[in-house]
Each structure stands twice: as C-alpha cells, then as structure tokens.
Nucleic acid binder design. Sequence first.
RNA 1: GGCCCCAUCGUCUAGCCCGGUUAGGACAGAAGCCUCUCAAGCUUCAGGCAGGGGUUCAAAUCCCCUUGGGGUCACCA
Length: 502
Amino acid sequence: MFAFQQTHSCLEAEGRHMATITMPTTPARTRIAPSPTGDPHVGTAYIALFNKALAVRSKGQFLLRIEDTDRERYVEGSEKMIFEALRWLSLDYDEGPDVGGPHAPYRQSERSAIYKKAVDDLLSRKQAYRCFCTAARLEQMRSDMKARKEQPGYDRTCRKLSEDDARAKLAEGVACVVRLAVPLEGQTAFEDGLRGKTVFENRTIDDQVLLKSDGLPKYHLANVVDDHEMRITHVIRAEEWITSTPKHVLLYRAFGWEAPAFCHMPLLRNKDKSKISKRKNPTSLIWYRDEGFLPEALVNFLGLMGYSMSDQREIFTKEEFIADFDISRVGTTGPVFDLQKLEHVNGEWIQKRISLDDFVRRISAHWKGKYDEALVRKLAPLIQPRIKKLKEWSDYADSFFFGCPDYKTEELSGKRTPAEAAAILDRTIALVAGAPSFEHKALEEAAKAAAAEANMKPRDFLAAVFVAVTGKPVAPPLFDSMEILGRDETLARLRKARAKLA
RNA sequence: GGCCCCAUCGUCUAGCCCGGUUAGGACAGAAGCCUCUCAAGCUUCAGGCAGGGGUUCAAAUCCCCUUGGGGUCACCA
C-alpha cells in the first residue's frame, strides 16, 4: 500500500552512504513526534526538516504528534513552545494538535481509548500478556542479573502465568502492565532506508512494556498504533531508535499491520562526538532565536548536517533544500554540531541573503523596539555587512542610541603618545567645526588631507579620532558615523575625548 | 559488557553504488593584499582516505579482520 522502490542490490550492498530506498513516487506521510518535556530541541527541528522535505517532495503530508504519555516528565507550556518553534523555522505541519486534521486527536494523552483497544486485541490473541511484577521485584531481578553478569531484561515470569492466575490477580486489583510476547527464537530484521538490512536476534529483545500500570501507553505501543492509524508511510527518526525498531516491527506484525519504511538519521553530536546534549552544547531552539540566528540560517545549517546538496551549495533556502532533496544523498555519519560554522552560515544570511528592509525588520523584532526605528534605518546599512548574529547589533549600535561610553585612555592614544593623540584631536576639532559639508565623503577628504599635512598615514591619524567619535575601536565606519551623529554630537565627543587626554 | 550503527583534513563534506582524480570545496587556523576600526573581498599556505590483510594491471572506492567512535539495553521518549 505504501509502496516505495527497493533496489534489487540492497541486500548485498554494504558500502557506506548506501540508501536502499529511492524517493517515493506516491505521496508520503511523515511526522515528527516530540515529547513536551522542556524547551523545544534542536534535534526536533533537524528531524522535522528531513521529514518535511520528504513529505513535500512527494506531495504528501507532514504532521506533528505530541507524545505526552509520560506524566512524570511533562512540562507545562512545552507543547506551545514546540508549535512556536516549528513555525518560527517555517517547518509547519499539515496536521497537528493545534491545526487539526483527519486523524485527530494528535496528542497521545487524548488517545487512550485507541491504545486500550489495541492492547485488548493483542491480549486476546496472546500476542501480549499482563505482568504483575512490582517495580521492586524488577529492580531486584536486574541487580541479580547484573551480579551474575547476565544480560539485563525481563525474566518473563508473568508470561508463564496461567490465564486463571492472571484473571485472579486482576480481580484482586493487583497493579499490572501489559508486555509484548516477543518470539523467543529466530530473528527480526528490517530494511533501513539509509543503511540497508539490519538483523536482530529475537532472544536479545526484551518483552517490552506496552501499557503502563497507569493505563497510559509506552512509547513503543503508542508510536506504532498512531503511525498506523495516521497512515504514516515513512518514519524518519534519529539513530538512537535503531535498536527499538525490531520491537516496532514485531508489534506491527502482532497487529497484522504493514510497517512503514524506516530511515534513521545520524545523531547530532557534541564536540566530543557524544549525542548532542544541553550540558555540552546549546540545544534549545529558544536559545538560537535569542542569540540572533535567523530561522533560515538555522534550517540551512541543519540541512548541512546529514545532507549535501547535489551541486555542493552550502547556503540555500529551505525550498531549495527540499527541491534538491533525495534520500540517497542523506548521510549516515554523526555530524558534530559546530557553532562556528552555524555562525558563518548565519552571517551569510544576514549579510547577503536578506534585504536591507528585511534586516531592519528583524533587528526591530529581535530587540523588541529597544532601538529607535528611524535611527535603525540609518545605521542598518553600516551594520548589516558587519555582524553574524542579530545579537551583535548592540556592539555596533549602542553608542549611537545611548551615548558614548567612557573613553579608555589607552584606546584613545593607541600606538601614539597621549600628547600626539591630543594634537590630532585638536586638529580634527577645528576641521569638524569648520567643515562646509557634513557629508561623509567630504569629511573623509578633509580628514585625509589633514593627515597628509601632519605627514601621517590616514590610519595612524584617524585611530584616535575613530575611538573619540565611536567610543570604541570596533564600530561602523568613522565618517558615516560622524554624518549620522551630526556636527554637534561629533564635536562634543571629540572635545570630551580631548579633555580626557589633557 | 551484549547487541546495533558509523569511519575522507581539527569540523561539515564531495568522491564510494558503476575501482584509474595532483583526493575537490566550505568553516576554523596561518600569511599577505586591500583598508578610517571591525567586517567583507582577493591571493596564498597548512591539514585527510584509522590500521592490516585480501581481490585487481590498478583500491578512498569491492571483500574480510582489527582498531576507534557512537547509540541502546526503564512502568522515559
């Protein structure tokens, strides 16, 4: 039903980057299924991008499902942040909790009846069984196994329970979970769309808990039931799920359902190559937004992690990425999430890919009106080519809005003596006071002439002036700054600086 | 530790499937040019096929082993 081509050689192919499926020729339905357990995660956006790409490319649908079956880890407000973050990145979904859709509800906590029915079905066909073991017993069992150096896993005590015994315990009201009756022998294999065939020995697969004693499903159950009910055709998820895939395959089989295609993306990594984590790397999408990364740039960078464009372009829009997208170009090696490269990509976007007007809009939005709009407009062309993150705007702009910071004498005099710097400032004050035009070109010519008169190179002459006017050694160009500041303010600053050197 | 995944410059990667390249690009680094600071731009430099066996006239590319890294082993997802 959800057919996709498998290449004939896929079973023998062992080389790397060996995608075993081709792009679907029928509409694919994909999904992202985050848990609302905290700040929206950069990995969620990463996986969402690839799922979205496949859906759009195949003219299918991309949906959002909230996996909120863990009451312990549930964080209030997290779900809303997920919605907002995905929209911020333009990774919007065709179906989801806040947009609805034909398979609603899209929140697992609201689908209990569906899981209950599914589990009853499994139970009645002996594909699953009730387990009455207490947490304490399980813990004891595990530590015993560990002491004996055995592989940990449920010892299947309750699987041997007679139907009558189980019924009796149930009647007594003993708390229980439902476990999947995993075949004791044989193998379970699946074809990973990116990696080829992967085989697991069934004896290494635990009798997974499907339904918790609180009546809520565990991930494995909910995930399989929902993907089936929601007609998901391709599951693109992170590599960490590979080892649970055979459990899912077994579940599909137990239900008698056809499994979707699985593609396991490489995990985003910290610098030390471990799975990306907030202790070692910023992972919150909120952080990236607050830092002044453009959503376009973040998506662009995420695309670079795990994919390479067919023409090797590194700066591209989401649309360009999707247009190029081909499963066979998706990588399998875990990419280190390099903030420096992200900053480079963001810089390319800020400096070259957005218009001046757009830049102004984004600065205003990022700083929430902290800066006067008219002045932002004047300054924007000077600052846009100089920053890599919206957050850096303040470094260049503040002295135009909030006054000149106090001068550091060392910065003012620079490589010259304070007396020499003072002389230069005196000359500049006279020049600025008498300048017929306060247009930056005219100022520049006049200043350079003065430098020549003083028998100095422009850069030497202007060093002190630069700091005097802009307040710091890193700022927009001097003469443009003067023009924007105006004659009075420029003179005031020069005099204040001169006084500092007296 | 068992099982599973992965392996080209420090990092992201092209090349691998369909063996023959001076192994290409980007970020970061170094040097220089340009220059009113900082950016940008331009020109250079440095840096890699994890190791070992095969197969072959020829291996980054195909096969095997080793090593290394990662993931996973919950009434979390």
